[in-house]
Design a protein around this nucleic acid. Structure first.
Lengths: 344, 344
DNA sequence: CTGAAAGCGCTAACAG
DNA sequence: CTGTTAGCGCTTTCAG
């Protein structure tokens, strides 16, 4: 039974602060202070304490310590399951890249990171964490309120769509980055630049349409937009792009949202007898191995998950350190990778 | 100061089990048992307790709970930094995929996962975890001994190279998978099959050489092996393969270890005027977006990090559940993805 | 500079 | 079925 397992693990009785104190011939509080440095301990006493601790293989019980101090020196991470659930390769690449980056950032700072299954699922007991990063929250995400109500400070990595002005938020600066992507096409007035956004209604697709429209207006270009659903298979995507090119005539440049459609788009363009970049410039609004390894390689907007991770952890440390919240969303700059598909 | 931050977070006094008990007009132990179900509580009492808890926004203090029970319902994960440190894209893809898979596996089971910076770095206080997965341990990794000495059960995800027979280990079954990769080439006796392994001395490269040699012998093939260092740039790798083809004459099939060199290998082969798969079959001993999206796509051995993750978490749950250790390394089957580069 | 003792919030014996 | 009570191991007053 479970009973057996517990016994097996407690076989070796825990070495407590009392054992160390006894072995070193001092009181428990002296041992505690020797480590914490919160009061002066003579050098030789410290010596004896550490030697005894070493010999006994002592390390402080994190539970007892946290119970006393109220802190766990760990931060939590909530990742919305939609990123993990769907089997789309690009989706899991995003999930893994964000989770991995936050993990690495925490390792670097020597702070513990705990993945939280789902805080709102009433589990009786909460997860020990001093604060919690909620990555890509849902609209009006109840997790945020739940955690804050229990006194756990939250940092949002990308805003809650319904509450973009929440304090303690970091977010990718889509509009600047997307603008840069359009600029990189290097097309002059009077040219035709298509946008092929995804069909899901999220901030990223919305921004793409908005920035495209604005930029076309500023540059005196006609706007042409054709949605390319996230759920299309590669072959379906290729067929759709081929049809669009046939029906509407090829534009001078084409910007698509999902980099996973790099291959299909390239093949459709090639089938139409167009060369990239000579006849048609190409750019995509997210970066992945698909755009990097395509031939020709595709100019892409790297959404900079690493930067988002780093900024989120940094903001959390500030918040836990008692600083005042920043004036607005802390912007994370996406990075444009100019590649062969937009070279002159 | 830190003082300020602490106060800010403790602004809202913690709701304890006593508060709930008082509000519901019962004793603290009744509240405890209402949740844990470790003794029978009348339906209406439970009702009152939960209502009171809900109203007060109660959830149990994880520190106090863990201190009492000795368990934290979390498992730890130690990932060796070499995977994160080097900037190689394939390396970080591996790191992220493994970390992400373990995270997802834990989310699925509703168990907490804590990334452990480095347990052996004497931090005075340990990290709260019921057990710890050490992924890709170093040879004679001291982390394993350190944790076990402190009574924290360890599961190795891929063996400690110096101690492959440690109990509670899961490992990728390289040899079976690699054998399958060679078989997939579909070449007959008397043909020439090159192996281009990496130059690092790790289990994976060692196995590749061993399996290749054995298979060549079994199939009456000449063995030709040329190392392709992990540190080469794409252009350097392409140049090296081109030179090898020129110097030694093209083989009938070529197996390379690192899938990130898919592009370079393909280009070198094309430069030599060879068509894949008609003139030359190709396979790689690890899978990634590079082999998947190449044209033609490359037959690759997917090392199945997801499977490794899942098996490791599963084994940990068994160990924590008090089961006896399995008889040997729990094998995880890598998956061969046959693609265009080996089609007939 | 050091020791003694209180108590963090919870669970698990004991008692009914 | 429910209440009372004794600690889990640590930090932190309070005394010296």
């Amino acid at each position: 039974m479970g009973q057996k397992g517990r016994d097996a693990r407690l076989r070796q009785p825990r070495v407590t602060i009392k054992d160390v104190a006894q072995a070193a011939g001092v009181s428990p509080s002296t041992v505690s202070h020797a480590y914490s440095g919160r009061r002066a301990i003579s050098a030789k006493t410290k010596e004896r304490v550490f030697a005894a601790a070493e010999a006994l293989g002592y390390s402080a019980d994190p539970h007892a310590r946290s119970m006393r101090t109220g802190r766990s020196e760990m931060i939590g991470l909530v990742l919305r399951p939609r990123f993990a659930a769907t089997g789309a390769p690009e989706t899991s690449e995003t999930f893994n890249r964000l989770a991995g980056s936050i993990a690495i950032e925490c390792l670097r700072r020597g702070i513990g990171l705990v993945h939280v299954p789902d805080p709102t699922r009433q589990e009786h007991s909460a997860v020990p964490m001093d604060g919690c990063i909620v990555a890509h929250p849902y609209a009006s995400d109840p997790t945020i309120d739940f955690l804050e109500a229990r006194g756990i400070p939250v940092v949002c990595a990308d805003p809650d769509p319904d509450r973009p002005a929440l304090p303690w938020t970091v977010g990718v600066d889509y509009s600047t980055g997307m603008r840069a992507a359009f600029e990189a096409l290097g097309v002059g007035p009077g040219r035709r630049v298509w946008l092929l956004p995804g069909s899901e209604d999220n901030a990223w697709n919305r921004e793409a349409r908005r920035v495209h429209a604005r930029w076309c207006e500023d540059s005196s270009l006609r706007t042409e937009v054709h949605a390319l659903s996230e759920s299309l298979s590669p072959d379906e995507a290729e067929a759709l792009v081929s049809r669009l090119l046939a029906d509407h005539g090829a534009p001078d440049a084409l910007v698509f949202s999902l980099s996973k459609t790099s291959g299909p788009v390239l093949r459709a363009v090639a089938s139409a007898g167009l060369r990239v970049p000579q006849d048609l410039k190409l750019a995509t609004l997210t970066d992945s191995s698909f755009s990097r390894t395509a031939r020709p390689s595709i100019t892409a907007l790297d959404l900079n998950h690493e930067g988002l991770a780093s900024a989120a952890v940094d903001l959390m440390m500030r918040r836990l350190g008692g600083e005042a919240p920043p004036g607005g969303v802390v912007p994370v700059a996406p990075v444009l990778h100019a590649r062969e598909s937009t070279s002159r």
